[in-house]
Structures are given as structure tokens and as C-alpha cells.
Simulated scan of single mutants.
Amino acid sequence: MVYRTGIRWRLMRDLAGDANFLTPAALIGDQTRARILLALLDNRALPMTMLATEAGVAPSTVSGHLTQLVEGGLLTVRRQGRHRYYSLASAEVAHALETLAKLAPPFTPRSLRSGTRARAMRLARTCYDHLAGHLGVSVMQALIERKALIGGNGVHDPARSVKDRLSAPGWDLTYEVTEHGWTVLGEVGVEPPRTARKAVRYCVDWTEQRHHLSGAVGAVVLERLLELGWVVKAPNSRVVRVPDKGVHGFREWLGIEMDALRTRAAA
């Protein structure tokens, strides 16, 4: 018996119409292609040779997978010199991968090294072109508490959410940077971005049921933190390290204590 109400009917309707998610699901579901997509999740553009290394396959093998991902709309490719560079087609692709990570079975570290990396991912990582993890959430919460951002309290409430879901872009709230907020952001050299992109967006972070800052402002904040040396991208990873310079900087700017965040990430 098929009910024409609720999620089951909507799913069948979409599969019979334009929104056939079987195509991207099949592309993502392959282990080699999944590794390629995860390697690009920090908004990098990488050549085929490096993606072959990331996926653990030969360049001749990865070539076919890259063609499928480009034709399927998950990757874009651009030529620069003699090489082609591949990147995620959009932020929506990144958010889809983040959501799947939330749906995946819990990760059980099999070694000290993998356990350390899992904690590092929870502590601070990139989410496409902005900061996520406990650090990203704490930055947004501190901006809200200082009235630099208005429009919400930074907390995801599943019982009240309409469109918002864990590990996905937020839609229910509209955040704005206040006049005072630009002063706070200006303390570290962040200026209003000149772009047609929406200034303030947010994502519901999968490490905890809270929001982290995205949109144009989220992108320029991460860019500035990298310039200041407060955060450093780990090689070939979405993990973001916070050196001593950043530990002192975050404490002085927003009162964020990295030791407390490390304890939360290890829990």
C-alpha cells in the first residue's frame, strides 16, 4: 500500500520526476570516487596525479572516475598549463558529503594515529571554504554573545527546526552582522566582503547541535585567520591546526580557550 502523503510519497514522486538522487548516490557510493571527493572537501583544486595518490589507485584508473564525477555534476575541472585541476562543483556537494558523514556508522579508531585524527577533525576543520568543528562553533557563539551577530542563538533545536538539519546548510534563521559586529571583526582585520554572495550563512555542525559561520563572511574570516597564522591547514587534510599564536589570539579576541575545546573533542 502506498500512501500519497509524507516523506515516502515525496521520495517516490521525486524519483519519478526531476530529483533522481540515485545518480549522485551511485557516484559517491564507489570507494575510489568517495576518496576523491573527500580529498577535495576542503575546497582545494587538485591535479589527477595527486587525486590518484589520495584514492590509492593508478592515474589510469582514477581518470575514468574523474570523468564520471565531472559528467555527474559533482566535480568541475579547469586547465592550467599542462595540467587539469579538479574541485567540488559547489558548496551543495560539500554539504551533501558532510551529511553522509553524519549518517555513516560511528567511526571506531583502530590505531592511535586514526584516533588522533578523529579528535583533530572534531576540534577544527574546514567545511568547504569556512571554519567548522568545535572551534568554528565557538567562534560563531562568541560573535553572537558579543552582539556582533544577531538573528539567532547559535543552537540547533531539532524539535523546532523546519528546514534545518544536522550537517547541512541552515535555512530557518537569518543572521546579520551588526555595526558593532564589523568593529569586532575589524579587530582582526576582517572587512565587509565585496561580493554578490550572501554575507552571512550558517551550517548546522555535525560535531554538536550548534551553528558555525559560513557565507561570504565565514569565508573571509577563515582566510584572515590563515593569514594571521592563527590556524594552519594540515597537508592533504581538512584538519586545521591551532599553533600557539592562534591559542593566544583566539583567547584575546573572543575569549576562546583552546584547552577546553581540546577536552570536548577528546570526549
Score class of each variant (00 low, 15 high):
residue 4 R to F: 12
residue 4 R to A: 11
residue 5 T to P: 01
residue 6 G to A: 14
residue 6 G to Y: 03
residue 6 G to E: 14
residue 7 I to K: 12
residue 8 R to A: 12
residue 9 W to P: 09
residue 11 L to G: 14
residue 13 R to T: 15
residue 16 A to S: 10
residue 19 A to C: 11
residue 20 N to D: 15
residue 22 L to C: 09
residue 23 T to P: 01
residue 24 P to A: 08
residue 25 A to D: 08
residue 26 A to E: 05
residue 26 A to C: 06
residue 28 I to F: 02
residue 30 D to G: 08
residue 30 D to P: 01
residue 31 Q to A: 15
residue 37 L to K: 02
residue 38 L to T: 09
residue 39 A to R: 05
residue 39 A to Q: 00
residue 41 L to H: 12
residue 41 L to R: 11
residue 42 D to E: 07
residue 44 R to C: 07
residue 45 A to W: 03
residue 47 P to L: 09
residue 47 P to Q: 08
residue 47 P to C: 00
residue 49 T to K: 14
residue 50 M to H: 06
residue 51 L to R: 00
residue 51 L to A: 04
residue 51 L to Q: 06
residue 52 A to N: 03
residue 53 T to R: 10
residue 53 T to A: 10
residue 54 E to F: 08
residue 60 S to N: 11
residue 61 T to S: 14
residue 61 T to G: 04
residue 63 S to T: 11
residue 63 S to G: 14
residue 64 G to I: 00
residue 65 H to V: 07
residue 68 Q to K: 14
residue 70 V to M: 02
residue 72 G to C: 04
residue 75 L to D: 04
residue 81 G to Y: 06
residue 81 G to E: 12
residue 83 H to P: 00
residue 83 H to S: 12
residue 84 R to V: 03
residue 84 R to M: 03
residue 87 S to I: 05
residue 87 S to M: 09
residue 88 L to S: 05
residue 88 L to D: 05
residue 89 A to G: 01
residue 90 S to L: 08
residue 90 S to E: 07
residue 92 E to G: 09
residue 94 A to N: 06
residue 94 A to G: 05
residue 100 L to G: 04
residue 102 K to Q: 13
residue 102 K to S: 09
residue 103 L to P: 01
residue 107 F to D: 01
residue 107 F to G: 12
residue 109 P to R: 07
residue 110 R to L: 13
residue 112 L to G: 07
residue 113 R to F: 13
residue 113 R to W: 14
residue 114 S to P: 02
residue 114 S to W: 02
residue 118 A to T: 06
residue 118 A to H: 01
residue 119 R to V: 03
residue 119 R to H: 06
residue 120 A to D: 14
residue 121 M to D: 02
residue 122 R to F: 01
residue 122 R to L: 04
residue 123 L to W: 04
residue 125 R to L: 06
residue 127 C to E: 10
residue 128 Y to V: 10
residue 130 H to P: 07
residue 130 H to L: 08
residue 132 A to I: 10
residue 134 H to F: 15
residue 134 H to N: 11
residue 135 L to I: 10
residue 135 L to F: 05
residue 137 V to Y: 03
residue 139 V to Q: 01
residue 140 M to I: 10
residue 140 M to R: 00
